[in-house]
Design a protein around this nucleic acid. Structure first.
Length: 379
RNA sequence: GGGGGCGUGGCAGAGCGGUUUAAUGCACCAGACUGUAAAUCUGGCGGGCUUGCCCUUCGGUGGUUCGAAUCCAUCCGCCCCCA
């Protein structure tokens, strides 16, 4: 059996750094480049598994911090792991809680040892260390788990970014040690990915890559991006980081992205993406379409009886008009949460399918150009 | 027939002499959202343009006052209680 998290390169683009490949996991093979929808609490908000499977979702994320708080790891262990608990029989990945160091920055205290969080549920105090995060992620039992890191804000100074990147490095070492502490079920069934930090400072980023490589992980993620920096800054980081991650490893860009980001970052050599945008924006009334993003709440759709996207054959587009979705949103009928989220997930998954296809056919740049021309045609 | 109350922006509802184009909520019009404390958040919401100022608004009309959504009179409309 191939090691969980193993990356197999299938085809490298001759036009750019983009590549087609596979990531092997205990619960199945993931075709890359891949978009991984986020189901923080063990579910994609508003979408049942059946719809995800039919939409060709290959792998989903969950968050160890959220699941640790609720329902707690004991329940998940008792259920036999997250995939038994939530009945998702395809691969899963858990985030370590590192992003919460960033997103819950008002209610947390950080030290060498780890991070003290105040629960967003009841205000109670909880301590997450690298060791704790790995233990929790082992108990949750997803196929791919992540190092506990500090995701810092875009506005961080060079000095803070340097200190933080060094801290994340020391934490990564501890994560690896904890993960490999005993040769057990987990070390053969799960794989641990390292996370490269360094903010927008390329020298810190490069140093971070070499440090992570030195520790040695099954795959490598790039964290701390899409936190407010410009597209040029993100591009610059990826251009300096991606080429020095070995090509026999999966390269995962955390928290990205929007449809346009997918094309841009695949071009730069990224294999894996995750993002909350399809579900969150869907719940806020936004739909991604081949012709650009639209807000279905807007008055122009009140009597538009066409589907969201004439190029889409998702259940939402097959069954419902813009006018009806507009009505559901305006009258706050909860069905729109599912219908819009599902459409957006389908859009992202199928966009990625199209990207893979274009890479296989050697026409990535042409397809990218076609996509952008249409995507920005609305305005 | 007798007594009392009320009429405020699309709706609900504050304000009860000057800081009032008039709180707040809803509705409406937009925008944002990138490892989810998000079915959330932000802005706009009388008219005009030279974008700072001007004009117009609190049922109607007429008064009092330097000044009225706020006080008085009257008309119109609505509600409640007693007969």
């Amino acid at each position: 059996m191939l090691k969980c998290g193993f990356y197999q390169l299938i085809k490298k683009s001759s036009e750019c750094r983009a590549r087609v490949g596979r990531v092997y996991t205990t619960r199945g093979v993931v075709d890359t480049p891949v978009f991984m929808p986020v189901g923080t609490r063990g579910t994609l908000k508003g979408i049942a598994n059946e719809f995800l499977r039919n939409s060709d979702v290959q792998i989903v994320l969950a968050n160890s911090y959220h699941l640790y708080l609720q329902p707690g790891v004991e329940i998940i262990k008792k259920a036999g792991g997250i995939q038994k608990f939530n009945s998702w029989n395809r691969p899963m990945l858990t985030d370590s809680g590192g992003f919460q160091v960033f997103s819950l920055s008002d209610t947390r205290k950080i030290s060498e040892k780890g991070v003290e969080f105040k629960s967003y549920i009841d205000g109670s105090k909880h301590f997450f260390s690298p060791e704790k995060s790995i233990q929790v992620q082992k108990d949750i039992g997803a196929d791919i788990i992540m190092c506990f890191d500090e995701c810092i804000p875009y506005t961080s100074s060079y000095e803070y970014a340097k200190k933080s990147t060094e801290l994340s490095f020391r934490w990564a070492k501890r994560c690896k040690e904890e993960f490999c502490k005993e040769e057990d079920f987990h070390t053969t069934r799960q794989s641990l990915f390292g996370i490269i930090q360094g903010s927008i400072y390329n020298d810190l980023r490069i140093k971070s890559v070499y440090e992570m490589l030195n520790i040695g992980f099954t795959g490598y993620a790039i964290g701390g991006l899409s936190v407010g920096e410009s597209k040029e800054e993100m591009r610059s980081v990826l251009e300096s980081v991606v080429p020095i991650i070995p090509n026999d490893k999966a390269k995962y860009l955390m928290g990205v992205g929007m449809p346009e980001d997918l094309w841009e970052c695949v071009e730069l050599g990224i294999d894996m993406f995750d993002c909350v945008v399809p579900t969150r924006n869907g719940r806020n009334g936004q739909a991604f379409t081949s012709f650009g993003k639209i807000n279905i709440k807007n008055s122009e759709f009140k009597d538009d009886f066409s589907s969201l996207d004439s190029d889409c054959c998702c259940p939402t587009c097959r069954g419902y008009s813009k006018a009806y979705l507009n009505h559901l949103v305006r009258s706050k009928e909860s069905l729109y949460l599912s219908l819009l989220s599902l459409h957006n997930i389908y859009f992202m998954i199928h966009l990625m399918g199209r990207i893979r296809e274009s890479l296989e056919m050697g026409s990535f740049l042409k397809s990218k150009k076609e996509f952008f021309e249409k995507y920005y045609s609305r305005n």
